[in-house]
Computed example of a mutant assay.
Amino acid sequence: MTNRSPCGTDSPNAPSTGAMISALVSAVALTVLTLFGEAVGHWTGWLPSFDIAFGAASLLVSPLLLRRPVSATVVLVALALLSPAATPSAAMGVLCVAQQSRFRVAATVAAAGFIAHAWQGIWRGYPGIDYIWWLLFIAVAFSALLSWGQFARDRRALIHSLRERARRAEAEQGRRVAEARMRERHLVAREMHDGLAHRLSLLSTYAGALEYRPDSPPEQLATAAGVIRAGAHEALNELREVITVLREDANDHDLLPQPVLDDIPRLVDESRDAGAAVDLHDAATGGETVPDLVGRTAYRVVQEGLTNARKHAAGQPVQISLERRSDDRLVIDIRNPLPPDRSAAPAAPGGGFGLIGMAERVRLAGGNLDHGTSPAGEFRVRAWLPLPT
């Protein structure tokens, strides 16, 4: 429900036709009552026509309160200086100014209204009421109009401020939801790249071996087929995990166990079984337990390094070093010689964002990753992750 001021505004710049009509009706009614009171009182001679004319003039000026409240109120106060018939409209004008203007302007207009009615009491005189009491009455009346109007103005400003804050909070919440969804999409894409890309590159290696060596002994063919079957099964499991993450009703029991630091030797053995020459210098696994985030990030770094080596340097030996430093850091170093023909297409397609995403993953874990070609002609990936003290 909206509360409207007598001036017809929810804000200083939003006049209302309905409130305008209400204000005019109120002014007309009060003016008529004032004229009636004068008629049954001490009207004599030319005063009736004089007050009727000033009352009509005040009613004609009253609609201007909605557009130019200060100017219209000044005119109404001037009319009230001479005739009590303009008092209702002048009082309405003081209230409108108080509701729409700063305190200094509103107080000035209210003071002008008080002075005008003080002069009105001097030259018109009102039987039955002492002039001092008349001054006290109009002082209280205009003070009340000023206070009421300023209160309504402050309340309207507060409501507007709260609405604006609510609108901004809603927009901010929408932005946060969109950012959260984007982060989840990036997380899912990263997990798909890190897990499935490694698994499928292994399958591609085994399938390539079967394609180019169809004359291999049946035992080797059976072993390779078994590895392909097991790799496909693992790839399907990882794909199921990604889909589970995307489901809104998924819970922690639906997720597969995440890899940890001690799973790195098994990862290296899978690459060796695929025919890759991988040398692992392991001085980190099997010791003190590391946080899951650090272990999982280290596993993904090694996984991405092996995947890149199979894609871009197929057949080249890979050296991996895992080391716990005395400065509470886990250092991962992966290097492999560059292929003789660097212009050749990769053994498997890729998006070129694996190491970029991996660097971001390491950064989120509190570490750092850099990669590039070393002076010895090797492609090197080096990362460090913080360990708890």
Rank of each mutant, 00 (worst) to 15 (best):
Q220T: 14
N237G: 13
A27F: 13
V105M: 14
Y206G: 02
V278W: 00
R247P: 04
A274N: 01
G226W: 03
Y212P: 11
P84E: 10
M192F: 12
L35R: 12
L81S: 14
L146G: 10
V177G: 09
G377P: 11
K311W: 05
A314R: 11
Y131M: 12
L82C: 11
H281V: 12
R68F: 14
A91K: 05
V28G: 14
R167H: 04
S5A: 08
A29E: 04
P48R: 09
G350D: 07
R382V: 02
D51S: 06
R153Y: 11
R168G: 03
Q173C: 10
S26K: 01
I115P: 05
L33R: 08
S11C: 07
L82F: 15
L187S: 15
R124D: 15
N13W: 08
A224E: 05
A98L: 07
P69G: 13
N336C: 11
R4L: 08
R296D: 10
V294R: 05
V362K: 02
E179Q: 07
R104L: 15
L79N: 07
A57T: 05
G149Y: 03
S101N: 13
F36Q: 15
D273M: 05
S16A: 02
Q120P: 14
P88T: 13
T87R: 15
A78Q: 15
V32G: 07
W43Q: 06
L65Q: 05
W384Q: 02
D254W: 02
S343P: 12
L322R: 01
P257K: 13
H233Y: 08
H371C: 04
V25E: 12
L221S: 10
A230L: 07
A14P: 11
S343T: 08
A141R: 11
E360P: 13
W119S: 08
D10M: 05
G93T: 13
T44Y: 15
G41S: 06
T389R: 14
R163D: 12
R190K: 14
L261M: 00
R272Y: 02
A313E: 00
G41D: 01
A90D: 15
L306N: 01
H253M: 06
S5C: 04
A86D: 07
Y126A: 12
D292W: 05
A276P: 14
A189M: 10
A106Q: 12
L66I: 11
R176D: 00
D292C: 00
L210G: 01
L76E: 10
S201R: 01
Y212Q: 15
G286S: 01
G286C: 00
A180D: 10
V290K: 06
P339W: 03
A376P: 14
S11K: 09
D194S: 10
E288P: 05
L136A: 06
G377W: 03
N251A: 02
V260S: 02
V381M: 06
V318I: 05
A347Q: 09
S26W: 03
L30Y: 12
Q303S: 09
K311R: 04
G174Y: 10
P15K: 00
G366Y: 06
F114Y: 09
T87K: 13
P15E: 09
